[in-house]
Design a protein around this nucleic acid. Structure first.
Lengths: 184, 184
DNA sequence: TGCATATGAATGAAGG
DNA sequence: CCTTCATTCATATGCA
């Protein structure tokens, strides 16, 4: 199986028909896999141990191709991006007036990030009602019985295409052009 | 993915949702904004710091709606695409078959999966590293020096906890592995 | 009009 | 853990 998943299969492949197709490149989680991972995350798991990763991976392989490292990276990314998203929270509500008009510009324009930048919008439903600090770093994976076969092989992979929601089309008179980018 | 996200535009959906002017959805830069961004880019800016992003964003908000993340993404994409373009060109000229080094790489990868998860793979992407762009990564935008927080809390620096050789204890006879995520 | 292309946005994978 | 790179996905837009 070594050649089975060589580094990457280069681009030039057919249009991603998404779904079952095993795009040779990187792991493309199925919706079920994502769901499980998300649930685990929401349950408090943040940095699974090697052992846990292996177990999770094994279970998830039921829904499709997956490797341990995928699980590992998933948690790392998810955790990091969540944090980024949350660690800023600030100068948002304040918003800079950019428009002279009263238009409510839905100033929810949270700042991308103070430290890092990244999506913030995802917090929509995200933050459920979790006690917050109760992150179980060592979540126990209970051994149980069978899996209840929810074999939806065709994962539609509906990526969340969320989106800020700020839809106004700002119209402003010509700016005083304060932009002092010296080198412009 | 996060299941909670209001999938705004789930795969292959509409082709013009609201049909009228208001196309909220994604940021649509005005020509002025693009010009400024492009100029900055040409001036050498590639990966603006958070601070710079905020400033740029603020300035650009004058020309129209914009959020910090838009600036962030713009630079990421612009940089990536330029690199991508250049790569394609050089590849076209030299015409290398870059598939030769894939072999050894996949081996490392395999290692990750079987033994423990991590390290080892880290090296397999060294292959295509660019010479180094002589660009000004630190271009100063404004004389202002607003140092924000430096919340470097506990830098655990846990490094890799994936030990290399002591994996015999857990993996050998992988347990029934029934890992039932009870809460699923 | 329907595809081709440019590009905004998201995220897997690494690097450090 | 934080940053950055690579790749993918989705949509706005241009063109024949």
């Amino acid at each position: 199986m070594e050649e089975g998943f060589s580094g990457f299969c280069i681009k030039g492949n057919l249009r991603n028909n998404n779904g079952s197709g095993t795009k040779c490149g990187r792991w493309n989680p199925t919706t079920e896999q994502v769901k499980v991972l998300t649930d685990l995350f929401r349950s408090g798991l943040r940095t699974p141990s090697t052992d846990q990763i292996q177990k999770i991976s094994t279970q998830l392989s039921f829904y499709g191709k997956i490797e341990s490292k995928n699980v590992f990276y998933w948690f790392q990314n998810h955790k990091a991006r969540e944090r980024q998203k949350r660690r800023k929270v600030s100068m948002d509500e304040n918003d800079f007036i950019s428009c002279t008009r009263e238009n409510k510009i839905s100033t929810s324009k949270r700042f991308f990030e103070v430290n890092n930048l990244h999506h913030e919008i995802k917090e929509f439903h995200n933050i459920n009602h979790q006690p917050h600090e109760r992150v179980i770093e060592t979540l126990q994976l209970f051994p149980l019985n069978s899996f209840d076969e929810n074999d939806h092989h065709n994962q539609q992979q509906e990526k969340l295409r969320f989106h800020a929601g700020d839809c106004r089309e700002a119209i402003m008179d010509h700016p005083p052009l304060d932009l002092r980018l010296s080198f412009l």
